[in-house]
Design a protein around this nucleic acid. Sequence first.
DNA 1: GATGAATGAGGTTTCATTCAT
DNA 2: TATGAATGAAACCTCATTCAT
Lengths: 199, 199, 199, 199
Amino acid sequence: MDISTKERLVNEGMRLFGEQGYRATSINQIEKAAGLVPGCGALYNHFKSKEALLTAGIDRQLDRRRAMRDISALFAGLGDLRTELTLLCRYLLSVLDQEGEFLQVAARTPAADSARVHDAYAALVDGLCTELAGWLTACAPDLAPADARRVATLGVNALLGKRVSSIVFRAPQPDIADEDYVAEWTVMLADRIESLRQN
Amino acid sequence: MDISTKERLVNEGMRLFGEQGYRATSINQIEKAAGLVPGCGALYNHFKSKEALLTAGIDRQLDRRRAMRDISALFAGLGDLRTELTLLCRYLLSVLDQEGEFLQVAARTPAADSARVHDAYAALVDGLCTELAGWLTACAPDLAPADARRVATLGVNALLGKRVSSIVFRAPQPDIADEDYVAEWTVMLADRIESLRQN
Amino acid sequence: MDISTKERLVNEGMRLFGEQGYRATSINQIEKAAGLVPGCGALYNHFKSKEALLTAGIDRQLDRRRAMRDISALFAGLGDLRTELTLLCRYLLSVLDQEGEFLQVAARTPAADSARVHDAYAALVDGLCTELAGWLTACAPDLAPADARRVATLGVNALLGKRVSSIVFRAPQPDIADEDYVAEWTVMLADRIESLRQN
Amino acid sequence: MDISTKERLVNEGMRLFGEQGYRATSINQIEKAAGLVPGCGALYNHFKSKEALLTAGIDRQLDRRRAMRDISALFAGLGDLRTELTLLCRYLLSVLDQEGEFLQVAARTPAADSARVHDAYAALVDGLCTELAGWLTACAPDLAPADARRVATLGVNALLGKRVSSIVFRAPQPDIADEDYVAEWTVMLADRIESLRQN
DNA sequence: GATGAATGAGGTTTCATTCAT
DNA sequence: TATGAATGAAACCTCATTCAT
């Protein structure tokens, strides 16, 4: 029920890193947000340094991601390509949404400040592409691996671009509803896969 | 050959803002990079404040963008949908590459620091979508505007996602060459448009 | 014996503000004078800003003044007008001497820097005039209030002018000893009051 | 008709020194107020340094004061002590008003910044006391010089206190009109002088 | 005589961190 | 575990002054 001080520090730290960037966020701000008296370095009772807090936040995000992995396997075998693609698209979007805070942090934290952040980003995107490619292959076994990979990458990027716009750049694309976007995405990928299978 | 101090300040400022973020970049760094003695506030002979330098940089980027606009009109009328789409895709990627520094700055500058930055981002993406949608409509006049917009947004996002990954998150997707990506993008959009025209 | 850092900061701050003026006094100077390492912003552990330090100093002065108030009541009822006036004159001078540091600060701090300082000054002088006028009335009940006020104001100003010269402008009037000045002041006011009573 | 740049610099410099203090006033402010482009050091075409400008301003004030001196001689010989004292009181007040800007500068400029300022202040007050004492002696030749000096000093201080309150501390004493103050001052000094003559 | 640019010094304030309590 | 205080470094920015034009 009670949430520990350490956890609160990670929560507020990641939130503020996402909003303002790592360098632009002061330890005072984090302490204040976590309900501690700012300026007293209470954070140092829980983390060795500011960077250690960031690392802990990233690691927590990686853990969460690992826990979510392979949920997409549940969607397989429904038989209908379009239905499965729709579910998968929604799944990918929800992953990106869950990673929204992390995406912000990664975007606002230059590689010089934390290599780990950028490794985690690369792993995230690569993981999603691999996941989607694997699913495409599972669902259309006669697809060439390179083809699957190419289509999957484009599919992931199309979703990533949309979410990055709204989450990182805070510029949502309000003229197109998520529903319609998912539908369009599904059609394009399904058509393309069917077209590739025929060759 | 001669490049004015003011221009050098904008150049180096935007470069550093892109690399490190606005807040994380110090005026000393910018002055040093521009060949001035740091710590003397020489920057303030040219700009009222750090934020004014950022604003000048954004405005310069907006000017450059305006100058590039409508070049895509040159590609129209080649007759072959796939050829035109290929050119257009390359054009969009080159625009994003030219805006790379700006994308970095925008990603690393929270809205609280500069609303103008985020307005410029929204204008950029919206402009590209509008441009692409307009081109699709010109090339397939029987396309419903909403359809064109949807396809265009997805197309732009697919490119944006790719470039943001490499430019902002410094996580290129090296397993797929740009050429192949362009080809895939072209095929998917062309197929989709042709499919939409038949209805 | 022990005097807290916060108190030391107020002490030294007010002393330096008095000597040099508020704007001309740097926080480094104050920190150094208070025995802290300058340039580290140690002052900010105790005060929100430079202005907060000034405000604290003014408030402390106001407190001290309140504590001194109405001591003059002790002098009343001696029966002899001249004796009482002499005591009162010495009292007023001692108040001004105690407020010497504050007078310096007020003189050297333009209203734009701190309205509170100038309010405090007005309250001080007005308080002294009121106090003296009240005493005159108590000691010569048939005096018209306006007459008492006028005489009191002139009496206070005559002392204020002398002390401001020496304290604020550092130009003492060494040709006349304080004792003689007090005597002259007493005679002039006593004569005037007696003259006013007869009408 | 045209007022030279140099003169404008002295005018605006003294005005700003009076309002804000010497240290708190920047050369940029003075240049801007004088209609020059700030930050270009145009002031240095006319004065060797900021302090030289202050010195020039003080010297100009001293010149003006010298030009006014001995005007009081005009009032002598009217025969009526009270009439002459009234005129003299008005004269002294007008001198203080004319020196208002200088009084501000002197109050806000610590001695460390300019010894000349404080010498000028001492000379001003001493001059006024001497002038008044001389006039008292001229008008009542049987007055002991020490008596005259004492009364004169008190008289000058009573006016100085009033004007310093309003000019330097910006705390006018609005409950008593200048007219009434002059009348009270006249009566008190006249009574006192007459009383001294009888002994 | 006026200006744009440069510079060393220093202004107020914030920051990450440490330490005694 | 939390806090108040201290500190070195560095942030943004201003200042007085100089110099070439």
